[in-house]
């Protein structure tokens, strides 16, 4: 991982033309531990839900760290961890074409059926 981030303090002043005091190129620490995403199942039968992320050197340490950081207040009975780099996300720029077309298609909701009286909890 060799990511270079630029910090601009006063609006969008480019580094090279800013005064010395604001110059700050933060290089990510090459020896830093990778990032992991943590998923917790709060009780048997429920799904694992995303709880947050943390740093760890490997999967075993990630599980222990997740136990210490995210289950101190009895939040769960099972943990999953996955290295963040293996998660692929949809692009926010695609939001219009991805999600908006569903907005006017109410018939996709199963709300046009007559339910028999015997069926409860629907």
């Amino acid at each position: 991982m060799n990511i270079t981030t630029r910090k601009f303090y006063y609006g969008d002043i480019p580094e090279e033309s800013a005064g010395g005091a604001t110059s700050a190129i933060v290089k990510s620490n090459e020896t830093a531990w990778p990032l992991w995403e943590v998923f917790i199942r709060s009780k048997q039968g429920l799904d694992h839900k995303h709880a947050g992320s943390l740093h760890a050197a490997d999967a075993a340490m990630a599980i222990e760290n997740a136990r210490d950081v995210y289950t101190r207040r009895q939040e769960g009975v099972s943990l999953w961890v996955v290295e963040s780099k293996y998660i692929h996300a949809s692009n926010p720029d695609d939001a219009e074409s991805f999600y908006e077309p569903a907005a006017d298609k109410v018939y996709r909701h199963p709300s046009f059926y007559v339910l028999p009286d015997e069926i409860k909890h629907m």
Binding site: W33, L54, H55, A56, N65, D68, V69, R72
Partner: peptide, 11 residues
């Protein structure tokens, strides 16, 4: 040495 281990030893 790192936030996660800080919490671990404090626990």
């Amino acid at each position: 040495p790192i936030l996660e281990q800080d919490i671990a030893i404090t626990n």
